[in-house]
Design a binder for these strands. Sequence first.
RNA 1: CGGGGCGUAGCGUAGCGGCUAGCGCGUCUGCUUUGGGAGCAGAAGAUCGCAGGUUCGAGUCCUGUCGCCCCGACCA
Length: 592
Amino acid sequence: MSELFVRTLREDPADAEVPSHRWLVRAGYIRRAAPGIYTWLPLGYRVLRNVERIVREEMDAIGAQEVHFPALLPKEPYEASGRWTEYGESIFRLHDRKGADYLLGPTHEEMFTLLVKDMYSSYKDLPLSLYQIQTKYRDEARPRAGLLRGREFVMKDSYSFDIDDEGLAKSYAAHRDAYIKIFNRLGFEYVIVHAMSGAMGGSASEEFLAIAENGEDTFVRSPGGYAANVEAVRTPPPEPLPYDDAPAAHVEDTPDTPTIKTLVDLANARFPRTDRPWQPSDTLKNVVLMVSEVDGSRHPLVIGVPGDREVDMKRLAAQLEPAEAEPFSDEDFAAQADLVKGYIGPARFAGAAEPDAWLGEDSLTKIRYLVDPRVVVGTRWVTGANEPGRHIFDLTCGRDFTPDGIIQAAEIREGDSAPDGSGPLTLARGIEMGHIFQLGRKYAEALGLKVLDQNGKLVTVTMGSYGVGISRAVAAVVEGTCDEMGLCWPRELAPFDVHVVAAGKEEVVGRAAADLSVQLDEAGVSVLLDDRSVSPGVKFADSEILGMPTIVVVGRGLANGVVEVRDRRTGEQVEVTVEDALTEILAAVHDA
RNA sequence: CGGGGCGUAGCGUAGCGGCUAGCGCGUCUGCUUUGGGAGCAGAAGAUCGCAGGUUCGAGUCCUGUCGCCCCGACCA
């Protein structure tokens, strides 16, 4: 270790917030080179390669073949698929000396598709799975948390090519199984959730999330086994209610009630219900948004949700993609005088000139109106009358207003029922470690990947796409394993199997430590030997920060013919005689 | 791109218009020390993010700019 290129820091770096970032920097595993871009130092690089090794083994095991594309790519394939523009700002673009456009690959669907198109043309060549471990580039709006969201990151991406959907299902299942094996070996707790396929396109997709406080994704689980990213949760609409006996809608003066709370308070004071008090869930909250389409056009959108729920912007964004939504600004309100902030409702108030439906594409305003699935035919609401200080009561869906459709954008809350009826949902956070997609024919179609089938007819190939964040996995493992003393690697990922600390200045200590290290090395165990001439305290502290799973201390016990073997994770420590040390340590290493 | 915080030596920081920019860690030299981040003595290391401006005088005030961190909008 006296020669190892490493420097541990005694204090936390000021710019590191999350534990993985903090410890990887403090332990000298990585170093920041630029925003969201990190240099791998010797210890860190060994971990990264261990992750790669595991991924390779499991990908090879399902018959996927490794290839390697350039990271520097020409524009044309991405133009053909539409992603040159779709990816927008988050793609690194550059020019060669002739002015031709290039990009640093954010992902490689196009390149794989074209490669297969180039080489294969028959159904007999399929199925095929290819993968690569490649450095990817995305000019993230906000790189953060060290390796967890960088602008340069290492990813394993693989692609399956099949003649039909049945084949795709098989390839998808094979990858799914391989991923389960990979994530089991990486040694963190994870969950497989239903996901949105997002910009990738395609149908079914699932995410592998490492369960972690610092994760960016929120997911739900039910006791019955349902699991989904919140963005993918589909709230089922309740049965429609009969409304023949429902009272007619009526407008009431409700001064100074721009918020749900003030409205409910006033309703209880002035218009008390006989059966129970008014609740926020009796009101219909209408949120206005400005939607920007990919082509640059902008139009307002009103979303109706029960008053006790917020609109979840992430869920909304996932629904509208690739269009983007932002809250209605004051200028937007000024430009759209019909919309009365705080008193927006789907229907014109009774007695007005046009008492008909007020929102919706067939209505007077032509503003698209989408509602939460809970707003079904027959439900009765208290909602804005589109006049300052007035609300409509008993406004009945299907009778008094007709939404343009439903949207899954309301927040999901702890305790909500799972869509499949498998019980109440609990929420937790996770780090997206893997994402598998049944892409279908999007890219094959865009790029013309077709093969001849048994009947000599050209058919478009169907594809799957599967990613594992390799560099992210390093950080995710740290998030799940580090403690207040430092890193704490699972066996398969540790840069070295054993950390031998020579504690003591005596020559015999140094010699014994070195001898033991050589023996271990010859026995096939990788060893980090701390032979520095610093005080034992420094060595102990460093051994804990660096986090090798087994720490062997050769020091004062040597006088009695013993050395100490510590387990970094449990802190358990046993003394073994020098003669037994080798077998004991080998047992510890191979045991776990 | 919005909101907030912050840029002073490799790392962590003090300095709040006034002298030669201070301290701790780390680094180097020498001596002492060696089971929980040692002691003493000495040394190297900073155009105070950058560019303008105000002032007799700017790390300190103003403007701009670049960058970092956090929270939101976007994604492995």
